[in-house]
Design a binder for these strands. Sequence first.
DNA 1: CTGAAAGCGCTAACAC
DNA 2: GTGTTAGCGCTTTCAG
Lengths: 328, 328
Amino acid sequence: MATIKDVAKLANVSTATVSRVLNNNGYVNKDTKERVTRAIRQLDYRPNDIARSLFKGKSKMIALFVPDIMNPFFPELARAVEDITNKHNYTFVLCNTDDDLEKEITYLNALQQKSVDGFIIVSSNLKEDYLHNMNAPVVALDRIVSKQLSSVTVNNRESAREATNYLKAIGCKRIAHICGPDYAMNTLERLGGYLDIVKKEKWFLSSYVVSGEYNYEKTIAVTKELLTNHPEIDGIFAANDKMGVGVIKAAEALGVKIPEELAVVGFDGIAMGETTTPSLTTMEQPIYDIGAQAAKLLLEHIHDSNRSIEQVNLKTKLIERDSTRKRR
Amino acid sequence: MATIKDVAKLANVSTATVSRVLNNNGYVNKDTKERVTRAIRQLDYRPNDIARSLFKGKSKMIALFVPDIMNPFFPELARAVEDITNKHNYTFVLCNTDDDLEKEITYLNALQQKSVDGFIIVSSNLKEDYLHNMNAPVVALDRIVSKQLSSVTVNNRESAREATNYLKAIGCKRIAHICGPDYAMNTLERLGGYLDIVKKEKWFLSSYVVSGEYNYEKTIAVTKELLTNHPEIDGIFAANDKMGVGVIKAAEALGVKIPEELAVVGFDGIAMGETTTPSLTTMEQPIYDIGAQAAKLLLEHIHDSNRSIEQVNLKTKLIERDSTRKRR
DNA sequence: CTGAAAGCGCTAACAC
DNA sequence: GTGTTAGCGCTTTCAG
């Protein structure tokens, strides 16, 4: 690999001059510039980014923390972040944290040692304290709430209300909710939205809320139990699509007809919901957009340390599919 | 951020000594070591990896190229690579290439400038020529064939034969094949395996092979057409699960009963195949294992430039589900 | 307009 | 055992 010195020697100039033409700054005579450019081409010279990083104290890398890329919500998010990141000549680092605080901290430290310029984080554990005294900006996604941090989220509570109201509107009389794990902010908000609507109904029972823990198998099990104990339930709002699909599978196993006997609404809008039979009605999140906006926001923070904190709130959209539609 | 100099000053030693205790090499007196350790702790000092990288010419980063992380085959692969990578204190860079040669080359160059230590590549475009004069090792996955490169693949041809034979065994008399795009090596091999079995059958027609181009919508369209033109078809082998699910959806739309009137086998073993109704029988690839082995192999090449080229070939496994099972 | 030189933070000879 | 020093490859004052 040729270095800047080789180029300088070949072009008969100093390394400073080469650097100037490389970065297109400072005055440099047209002819010498030409000579340098030729030398660069001739040697197929590419500047060493590590050396640049050392000098600048920046690496042109940004990292995304997700619990697990195998969870179908995250690939689209990752794709969005990578697209924006790449367009701005940043390198994209992906970290699976398993929602484990220790792993998250280890990553945070390791990546700061590598001078990573910024972080986009989906986490249930990382609180302000950990994130506060970092030298790189952070954008929080989906689960973290802190006035100190820029973030991109959807209005989980309102969306959950909308989903629940929709089930009422299509004629459901007893609506249950499958919630996620209680450590996740987003699932608590969705539960809250559901409760906003149903808690004053005379029919409402606290046993209408069960936890599927964002887990497919677990959801099938708890839904079977729920429907067996409460055959009167004719509508279920699941806090995400993975669990919504679980509900469909549980109903299928029990011989409960969807949507005639049971209407189901999920949350997220992942592709899997389109391929089930019946397909799953869902509150679709603008996943790509969430990622893209987060990445843009982060880049702004990186380029301008005075960029003000901003909490972006995006809208969900009800996608009607067969798990409710025929009921209308 | 404290530097090695700060530590040296505080501990009253030279930076060399600090470096020695940091890297645990060279002799250093127990007491001074203690002093240095204390200073490190006191300043909360972390070595700057960029500086280390500059010196060593290595970055402790490895990159994975995939066409698109949103394609459900790749998250599990990425997860495996990241797990291994992380365990060995490497940083994991993810690149979506869209199977576009230009993007691939841009990435290759950009990452080499960052001294990325190695690459794992899923590509249909990158041939030996591009990969040959690189200064970092490459492991090819899934699609590239070259005697010059270590690789991890499954035996596509044999697996396709097995899938086709299985359809015959459960009683299918006319078996069609939905293949992928013709630029992808793996899909051509699967087509080859299918043909190995059926081409000498008297009933075989070349119109029994149609391309779904690894695309869900497209597959639904071509399958409808295929089944309409050839109602005698009672078995379909799809070159991947995404297309297999498309076949199920097309049959559903046409009122063709699966598996009674049509048996379907996919390829890959992605989660989506479990949630359809009926669930999709498939030739499951050991996706995680493919990624893990590739990562290990790459690490070996990184640590030992004389590591011999190795072509690892993994086995697929038939997973029987409802799209064929009830037929037995 | 161009070059000399210092320095980003760290490691590894090489001395003592 | 420990310190001195010369880089790794680049950018940027500061002179001229």
